[in-house]
């Protein structure tokens, strides 16, 4: 049997993909909010632990003598505790975000199967979910980082009053925010792309049959 030459041309222009992802976020607003919230919570928790450490370090470095002495006394204990807290919040963050993304994409297996019936390549499916999860991840992480910093700033303001502002560790907070945002976004993308990849690799009939 001679294989007929097939003129190869399949495409998904970026503009269309972007529009589709954006619209999907908008229409599944309720679902999007829940997914974004779980990213936000994870990152806010992580960021509050980071911020709290940053403030404590700043107070130790730049605070008045008396405060410094008491803080330094506790600093060894504090450090061990903060390592625990950071690890714990990282864990909560990873599990929460990955779980939310896994669920939200796995339940769309039929949609992925349908797209493949219409001639979508695996790449198109991945592109759509990449854009969507990037938006979720960035939005959730940025909001989470801001909320985390904000909450801890208020806590330190209440405890130390003006002193907290005078030692405000802007540099450290910025650095930690970046770390958190990159982490949150990466986790969101991995959590979404993995199930999207699994569904896209299946035969369309199988993907549409897949029960979640």
């Amino acid at each position: 049997m001679t294989k007929k030459k097939i003129e190869k041309q399949l495409s998904l222009p970026f503009r269309n993909a972007f529009q589709m992802s954006l619209r999907s976020l908008k229409i599944r607003f309720g679902r999007s909010i829940i997914v974004t919230m779980s990213i936000l919570l994870g990152i806010a928790f992580l960021m509050s632990v980071f911020s709290s450490n940053a403030f404590t370090n700043a107070l130790i470095e730049k605070g008045p003598e008396a405060l410094r002495a008491t803080m330094q006394q506790n600093s060894q204990e504090l450090r061990t505790r903060s390592i625990w807290l950071v690890s714990l919040s990282l864990l909560v963050c990873v599990v929460g975000i990955v779980n939310a993304m896994l669920m939200s994409v796995t339940e769309r297996s039929r949609e992925i199967g349908t797209m493949k019936c219409l001639g979508a390549l695996d790449r198109f499916v991945m592109e759509l979910f990449l854009l969507e999860s990037l938006a979720h991840g960035l939005l959730g992480s940025i909001a989470g980082a801001i909320i985390g910093i904000f909450a801890i700033t208020i806590v330190f303001l209440l405890q130390h009053g003006r002193l907290a502002i005078s030692v405000f560790p802007a540099g450290a907070l910025l650095k930690y925010s970046l770390v958190s945002i990159i982490l949150g976004t990466t986790l969101a993308v991995i959590g979404a792309l993995y199930p999207a990849y699994v569904s896209a690799r299946m035969e369309p009939a199988e993907a549409m049959r897949r029960e979640v």
């Binding site: 097939i6 190869k8 399949l10 493949k116 219409l118 001639g119 369309p204």
Partner: peptide, 10 residues
């Protein structure tokens, strides 16, 4: 995979 997608598409 590409040709199959093309077939399904066209």
């Amino acid at each position: 995979a590409y040709e199959l997608a093309w077939l399904r598409c066209r």
